[in-house]
Simulated scan of single mutants.
Amino acid sequence: MFKTGIYVDAENIKMSGGYGMRYDVLVDIANTEPSALLRANCYLAEDRERTSRDAEYRQKVYYYHDILRQCGFKVIKKYVRRYEDEDGNVTTKANADMDLAIDALLQARNLDRIILLTGDGDFIRLVTAMQNMGCRVDVIGFHNVSRELREVADSYLSGFLIPGLLPIQEENISGEGEWQRGTVANFNSDRGFGFFRFFRMEENQLKSDTVFFHLSKSTLEGDYYFQDTTRIFEFRVVENPSGEGRSEAWDIRLVKEP
């Protein structure tokens, strides 16, 4: 059994496309065999000045923190500080990177696997340090993930591709079939068809699957978008009645540029 720790750079995730991420899904992933969740830390910022004067904001912030704790996370806060320069310009700062790095290094001595949620390239040295301690380090991010961070990690997976981690917005859902997000596995530009690769949760395991698609079922013009395997698409998986019940991807739309 692999002892696992989750470390979430919440401000980076929120600002990089992961707003609304389901922390309970993240816990389920960390608890999939042969892994067992031992530590779960979430590092976030809080504006104490605003929480003291804005009741609505305070209620939302503390409700969010309570949800995290209910999911089993320890909430580590970094309070916003304001600085004023000679011209009277005010800047704010609330960076928890150092807190995350120190905690992860100290706790990694008792862990086998680290799941790090961030896109910040400043954590590259932390990743290699934990790997040198014998830990496997898996990185999950959304938009604007450092290429070097993806390369140094033992594995990188876009949070958009993890089933349920970032739910599809209800106003975007229409028609029958199961909505999924995936990337192009291969594409035949001459014939206008290819296959998407996506993930399912089966028997508490994240498993890869593929589905056929044709350009005629895309909301995008042309085949340019399907030439890059790093783009992420959203689509309905349906059984085509004219294709002997074969599963196909319909209503294809672009979610994320590389």
Results as ranks from 00 to 15, higher is better:
G121T: 01
V61S: 06
C42Y: 14
E202Q: 15
I124H: 00
V127M: 00
I168Y: 01
R113L: 00
N204C: 11
P163E: 00
S242N: 11
T32R: 09
A249E: 15
F233Y: 02
F160H: 02
E176K: 12
Q227I: 11
I124K: 02
G5L: 02
P258I: 02
F199V: 04
Y62R: 15
R39M: 11
K207Y: 04
H143L: 02
S146D: 06
G182P: 04
D66I: 11
P34C: 04
S158T: 04
E248C: 10
Y83A: 13
Y23A: 08
C135H: 04
M130W: 01
A55W: 15
E151N: 09
D251A: 14
Y57L: 14
D87I: 12
S155H: 07
N144P: 04
C71I: 05
D85R: 01
Y83Q: 10
L44E: 02
L165P: 06
K74F: 10
D97Q: 06
A96S: 09
K217R: 15
N240A: 13
V137P: 05
R50D: 12
M21T: 14
A45L: 01
G222F: 08
K93F: 00
R253C: 12
F193D: 05
K217P: 05
G164T: 06
E244I: 03
F73T: 12
L126A: 00
M1C: 07
N188E: 11
R113K: 06
S216T: 14
M201Y: 14
Q107D: 10
V137A: 07
A30S: 07
T32S: 11
Q59S: 12
D85T: 10
S189L: 11
G175Y: 05
Y57S: 12
R136D: 12
H214N: 13
I6E: 00
M133R: 13
Y224G: 08
K93W: 00
L157V: 05
R69V: 10
N172V: 07
N240R: 03
L68Q: 01
V238N: 06
Q59R: 14
I29V: 09
D99T: 08
L161M: 07
Y62N: 12
K78G: 10
R231H: 13
C135Y: 02
V75N: 04
D223N: 15
E33K: 11
G192A: 11
R253V: 13
R197Y: 03
R125N: 10
S208A: 09
F196G: 09
T91I: 13
F2W: 08
D209L: 10
R253L: 14
A101T: 15
E244Y: 03
T4F: 03
